[in-house]
């Protein structure tokens, strides 16, 4: 019984993560979307390269524990809200904690985090932005420090990442 329960939980978690990956993969080759994928290996390589440059070291400090980054951006679509609702329906709300919700007119911003229950470390951050003509999905994995995460928005020049600044504003 216990074994079945464990298996079901593990399968459920995997299936939920898969739903977001499937959504990402569905639009990865769609020309309406801009796609950015940074593998964990690049972050690990960056963390190993030392330098005297202050900015580099700052970035190294931020990315050293990060696992991977996936960004899906569509900034000139006419079904942004439809895409947002589709993605929203796939977010496994049981596994994620809602960190932030902003609604400004027709623009919706939502940020979720997923914690590792054993050591209360945030291991995934998911951001969704939906507006009539815009859709953004950003998934960041690894050991995430919310205090440093807004620094990532300053360091990386990736469309949509500026929404992470909202976490800093919320903390203030």
């Amino acid at each position: 019984m216990m074994c079945t329960l464990l298996f079901a939980t593990a399968f459920n978690l995997h299936a939920q993560n898969d739903a977001i990956s499937r959504f990402f993969n569905k639009y990865a080759e769609d020309e309406r979307f801009t796609v950015v994928y940074v593998a964990p290996k690049l972050f690990s390589m960056i963390s190993k390269v030392s330098s005297d440059d202050e900015e580099w070291n700052k970035m190294r400090d931020i990315v050293k524990d990060l696992g991977g980054l996936k960004v899906l951006v569509a900034d000139s679509v006419n079904n942004g809200l439809e895409l947002y609702n589709d993605a929203l329906g796939r977010v496994p709300v049981r596994e994620y904690d809602e960190l932030l919700t902003v609604r400004d007119g027709e623009e919706h911003v939502r940020i979720w985090t997923r914690e590792n229950k054993s050591d209360t470390v945030i291991e995934e951050l998911l951001l969704l932005v939906g507006a009539p003509d815009e859709f953004i999905m950003l998934s960041l994995s690894g050991k995430i420090d919310l205090a440093k995460i807004s620094g990532l928005a300053e360091t990386l020049d990736v469309e949509g990442i500026e929404h992470l600044d909202k976490i800093k504003k919320k903390q203030e």
């Binding site: 990865a28 801009t34 796609v35 950015v36 994928y37 593998a39 690049l42 390589m45």
Partner: peptide, 11 residues
């Protein structure tokens, strides 16, 4: 071969 980074925008 592992994918390290991919950026695609339009074509």
């Amino acid at each position: 071969l592992e994918e390290i980074i991919t950026v695609r925008s339009g074509k």
